[in-house]
Design a protein around this nucleic acid. Sequence first.
DNA 1: GTGGTCTAGACCACC
DNA 2: GTGGTCTAGACCACA
Lengths: 119, 119, 119, 119
Amino acid sequence: MQFNQDKAIFLQIADRLVEQVVQGSLQANQRLPSVRELAVQLEVNPNTIVKSYAYLEENQVIYKQRGKGFYVAELAKKDLIEKKRHEFTEQTLPQLYAEMQRLGFSVDEVIKLLSKMQK
Amino acid sequence: MQFNQDKAIFLQIADRLVEQVVQGSLQANQRLPSVRELAVQLEVNPNTIVKSYAYLEENQVIYKQRGKGFYVAELAKKDLIEKKRHEFTEQTLPQLYAEMQRLGFSVDEVIKLLSKMQK
Amino acid sequence: MQFNQDKAIFLQIADRLVEQVVQGSLQANQRLPSVRELAVQLEVNPNTIVKSYAYLEENQVIYKQRGKGFYVAELAKKDLIEKKRHEFTEQTLPQLYAEMQRLGFSVDEVIKLLSKMQK
Amino acid sequence: MQFNQDKAIFLQIADRLVEQVVQGSLQANQRLPSVRELAVQLEVNPNTIVKSYAYLEENQVIYKQRGKGFYVAELAKKDLIEKKRHEFTEQTLPQLYAEMQRLGFSVDEVIKLLSKMQK
DNA sequence: GTGGTCTAGACCACC
DNA sequence: GTGGTCTAGACCACA
């Protein structure tokens, strides 16, 4: 797999897994590939996967069972989507608004541009 | 000055200077503070300022006169604004649109949210 | 059964059995459930039960009869209680006392807190 | 330095640093030894120290400054002591009380034992 | 100089 | 088989 140089690989892997949970290709309580498996698959050192999984476990996206492996957390999908929607309305949009104003775009102009994309 | 730990300090300083050019508090051909001056003012290692100035020079926002210092480039303001407006319509907005869709926001909802901010 | 992820499952099972002996729900010379039975009941890998029983056998809480199964040791209850009372006065309490002092609790305060629980 | 086999080294190092903060031998905003320094001093791999520091940073006991190092957090001492006192009254003592009862000690007996230590 | 990341490879406890 | 930890050593961005 190709990785972006700008961001830590373990984070890119975590992001990818989060995406899969949000999209639904990873379901609640589904088992994730083992550390070694995923390491081989992504052509990465197992320790890097360990770090990704540890990161996701901290953020309660996945949980582990001793000697068995990692599983998708029950509330992961719901929580993640909720979190992202919150970020969108509370951060992304206000930032967009500020940027807009600094660059001299009016709300109406932006609305027009957005409406165009819809078609 | 307070810096965000997530982004390199030299980039945060460069962003800040770009902002000042766009806003007009730094005019074309105006001399920038010396590396040492700015380092003291921002409580930062001089090397960090050197890196910020080098970065801005690469991006033709400022130019250097040997033995004198750094100056705001003639076209900096115009170019920067144009560049940013282009980025906004060609990158920021399409990205926002994609994000919106993934999270299940309709264009109408986003328009409403933006309109609210205007008030 | 739910297990704590912080402690090895085989030890948690052993602790549980010890508790049952001390409480009396497992009597001297009573036969323990077979490895497979208990494994099914606790939804655990049979190997884990094997390890728990081996651990208890080492500590002379239970004994094995070839081809028959595991039984609660004669002196298990008496020994365990004696051992635990000894641990309590010689280890648990002194540790508590040290912790107390480090955190600035006086003996009187702790006595008050303990007395409250009694009610 | 000698480490206990039962607990991860990186956690033992973190505990040790927490102790030093609580005791006051590490003051607020004081710089910690660099990763490499401490690694040499404790005869441990630098990665192990990285893990300890990351763990403490997550728990807001320390913070880092890019390119400079790690520092003791402002509220670390206060928070840590408060947290530990809370644990003591809400967990340690109730557990002690339960253990006491199971082993047939009365509150009065325990109070006597504690009072003896005081002398 | 600082910490952050990654690889390679080993050993361990646990299931 | 599983994950967890640790070592050794390398490279990187940043101050």
